[in-house]
């Protein structure tokens, strides 16, 4: 009896510490979000005077103003279009390649894989001039296709690395079974490997979505036409060179963060409910 009580006490103390830690980390994460939300409802004059998290007056019109002044209507659609196309492209292209790197044997496999990995490591900030001249020659400058292809390339190496690591972990039995059933390589990739890799695919999607959604430098470089610009460039207008309209900027940032949060909520389910191999086999 005594030892049972001892173990219960130990467990409770342990759990208390775990929860305390979880909650304090969680609070530090929520705080900036709340600050952003509350700042988005203040005015330029009060934002740095009234530092409380609950503003005295609520200026919801900031959202409308941010939407119009940042030119969000068109930009928003553009960003959704670029992000879906790029992420879709990356998921297909990188999962195909990662699957091949993980499962197949062919000459030069390791060399090609290591080159992809190397690319992840070398930051080439200077390369944008070359990229610009290249797109110019290919007549892809100031076109969505040019931008989308560039952005697919940006996320490719990391996504291949992520996917390959997880494909390596997957058991081969299911694929073998499918092969015996007469499934082609493409069929196995599509119907066996991809569904099994759902947790990591969700990570890849979230990672690349955030990357494309927040990108502005390449977009500014590649696009001349304002009608092609993504959301971030609307935000840059609010951020301002000299005058920053802080409440509008915060409203704009909140609007910008929303789709990402929604996507994360959606994807997060795949990570949580991820079917374990056992369940699939069963």
């Amino acid at each position: 009896m005594k030892s049972a009580a001892y173990y219960t006490a130990k467990k409770i103390t342990f759990n208390t510490f775990v929860y305390l830690f979880l909650i304090s980390v969680a609070l530090s994460c929520i705080f900036p979000l709340l600050w952003m939300l509350s700042s988005s409802l203040k005015t330029q004059e009060t934002i740095f005077q009234d530092m409380s998290l609950i503003p005295r007056e609520l200026h919801f019109e900031n959202y409308m103003r941010a939407w119009t002044e940042g030119g969000f209507g068109r930009c928003f659609l553009n960003s959704i279009f670029y992000t879906t196309s790029v992420v879709f492209g990356i998921v297909i292209v990188s999962s195909l390649a990662a699957y091949a790197f993980s499962r197949f044997k062919f000459p030069g496999k390791n060399l090609i894989f290591y080159i992809f990995m190397g690319a992840m490591m070398i930051p080439i900030p200077g390369s944008f001039v070359a990229l610009y001249v290249l797109l110019n020659k290919l007549h892809l400058r100031d076109t969505p296709v040019g931008y989308i292809l560039c952005m697919i390339n940006v996320g490719l190496s990391t996504s291949i690395f992520l996917l390959k690591t997880f494909f390596d972990k997957l058991p081969h039995e299911l694929e073998d079974a499918a092969r015996i059933d007469g499934c082609s390589k493409w069929g196995i990739w599509r119907h066996v490997a991809l569904p099994l890799a759902r947790p990591v695919l969700a990570v890849v999607i979230v990672f690349n979505t955030l990357n494309v959604w927040n990108e502005y430098f390449l977009a500014l470089l590649i696009f001349d036409s304002p009608r092609l610009m993504p959301l971030q460039l609307g935000l840059m207008k609010l951020q301002g060179e000299f005058v920053t309209q802080y409440p509008l900027l915060m409203s704009g940032l909140t609007i910008t963060a929303l789709p990402i949060v929604l996507l994360y909520l959606l994807m997060q389910k795949y990570i949580v409910k991820g079917v374990t191999q056992g369940a699939v086999v069963g």
């Binding site: 195909l96 390649a97 091949a100 697919i152 490719l156 390589k185 990739w189």
Partner: peptide
């Protein structure tokens, strides 16, 4: 399988 990735 790796062709699209390699080309891009």
């Amino acid at each position: 399988f790796i062709l699209p990735a390699v080309v891009i």
